[in-house]
Simulated scan of single mutants.
Amino acid sequence: MRISLLAPVTLLSLLPLACGGSDQPDPNDPSQFGSGQYQGGQYGQQQPGYGQQQPGYGQQPGYGQQPGYGQQPQQPAGGQPTAPATPDLGGILGGGASTSSGGTASPIAPAAVAAATPVMTALAASEVSGMSPEGGAFAAQFQDGQTFEQPFNIQPGKCYSVIAAGLGIQNLSIQIVAQQAPLPPVTLAQSNTSGANATLGGKGQCFKNPLPIGGPAKVILRAQGAGAAIGQIYVK
Rank of each mutant, 00 (worst) to 15 (best):
T99K: 05
Q74R: 07
L14S: 08
G58R: 03
Q80A: 14
G215K: 09
A137H: 06
S35K: 10
L200S: 07
S35Q: 03
G21F: 13
E134Q: 15
G34Q: 09
G40E: 05
G96H: 01
L211E: 06
Q80I: 14
Q47T: 00
G204S: 12
D23W: 05
P61F: 10
P151H: 03
Q39L: 09
Q170R: 11
L200F: 02
D29G: 10
A97T: 14
L14K: 05
F33G: 10
N28H: 05
P118M: 08
L12I: 15
Y57F: 10
S106A: 10
A229L: 12
T82E: 06
Q72V: 11
Q53N: 15
T199Q: 01
Y50G: 00
V186Y: 07
A165H: 01
Y50M: 01
G36Q: 07
S173F: 04
A228V: 14
Y57P: 08
P107M: 02
P81H: 06
D26C: 04
P212G: 15
S191Y: 02
S132G: 10
A97R: 02
G130L: 10
V177L: 04
P182F: 13
Q150W: 06
P212I: 14
I213M: 08
E134I: 10
I169W: 02
A7W: 06
T147E: 05
Q71L: 03
C206N: 08
T82D: 04
Q170V: 13
C159M: 10
I230C: 03
G201C: 13
